[in-house]
């Protein structure tokens, strides 16, 4: 009885009545069902139901169907976003040029290799607040480096930062932050924040309004003032993983 119910003729009569999800499920039952359900006839049926115009091309199969209607249907109906392809840029290819001014006097100037910024502050120094320690230990993508020697900042005075990025693979430079002020000091979190809007290459005319953030990581000094023990760069408006950051950097207006 069961054998008769599962006969090829019965299945061939039932499969055309199914939707894509059910037909795909049938392909997972066993090898025989898979081979039957993989027949392009059923998938052409589905394609013509969903996109009638696609099957109206005279003679040759429609564009995309040369690989088979099963492939065409599944590729067009994939609900999930395909993962980001590997970026063309790597942290080995880039270095960051950091300059910080206090009242137009340079207090910090350094060239930071991309790999160093990517690896972050591995051992947070003693004396930092709990919020900062948790922040540095959290698993989210973070680009931080310790500052050595530490320098002092007075927030009643004018503090600015510039951040450029250079790429070794093409010997070009792009601007990430163009002399922005630290207008927001996070008291409880011991952070001072500056940001600027990224300038993208004309090849990406529809990408805009994405900010780069730069933070001074602070610790209490002996005399009650604050020292900078580290710096942090991130692009949390748009990029939350290493790959996303590299794609974003690749899209900048490189000169």
């Amino acid at each position: 009885m069961a054998e008769g119910w599962c006969s090829e003729e019965v299945l061939k009569g039932v499969f055309p009545l199914m939707n894509g999800v059910d037909l795909a499920s049938c392909m997972c039952v066993c090898t025989r069902w898979r081979d039957l359900a993989k027949d392009d006839f059923f998938w052409k049926n589905l394609c013509s139901r969903r996109w009638p115009s696609i099957c109206k091309t005279k003679g040759s199969p429609p564009i995309g169907a040369s690989r088979g209607y099963h492939k065409l249907y599944t590729s067009l109906c994939k609900p999930q976003r395909s993962p980001l392809p590997a970026p063309r840029l790597s942290f080995d290819d880039i270095e960051f040029y950091v300059d910080i001014w206090l009242n137009d006097k340079s207090v910090y100037s350094d060239v930071v290799p991309g790999t160093l910024l990517q690896s972050g502050i591995i051992n947070p120094p003693p004396g930092i607040c709990d919020i900062m320690r948790d922040h540095l230990r959290s698993l989210t993508c973070k680009m931080t480096i310790p500052v050595s020697p530490r320098f002092r900042v007075v927030f009643s005075e004018s503090i600015h930062v510039s951040l450029l990025v250079g790429r070794r693979d093409s010997d070009k430079v792009a601007c990430i932050i163009n002399k922005s002020g630290f207008d927001y000091v996070d008291g409880p979190a011991y952070r001072a924040l500056a940001y600027d809007y990224l300038q993208f290459s004309p090849s990406y005319p529809f990408v805009s309004e994405i900010r780069a953030w730069f933070a001074l990581l602070l610790v209490d000094a002996q005399d009650g003032k604050m020292d900078v023990f580290g710096i942090e760069v991130d692009f949390c408006d748009a990029a939350n993983s290493d790959n996303e950051v590299l794609w974003l950097l690749d899209m900048l207006d490189w000169k």
């Binding site: 919020i131 948790d134 922040h135 959290s138 989210t140 996070d186 979190a189 309004e209 949390c236 408006d237």
Partner: peptide, 14 residues
């Protein structure tokens, strides 16, 4: 309409 985000003072997220 654009809604901007700041940075959370307690964890640094948006």
């Amino acid at each position: 309409v654009v809604k901007l985000t700041s940075r959370c003072e307690l964890c640094g997220k948006a």
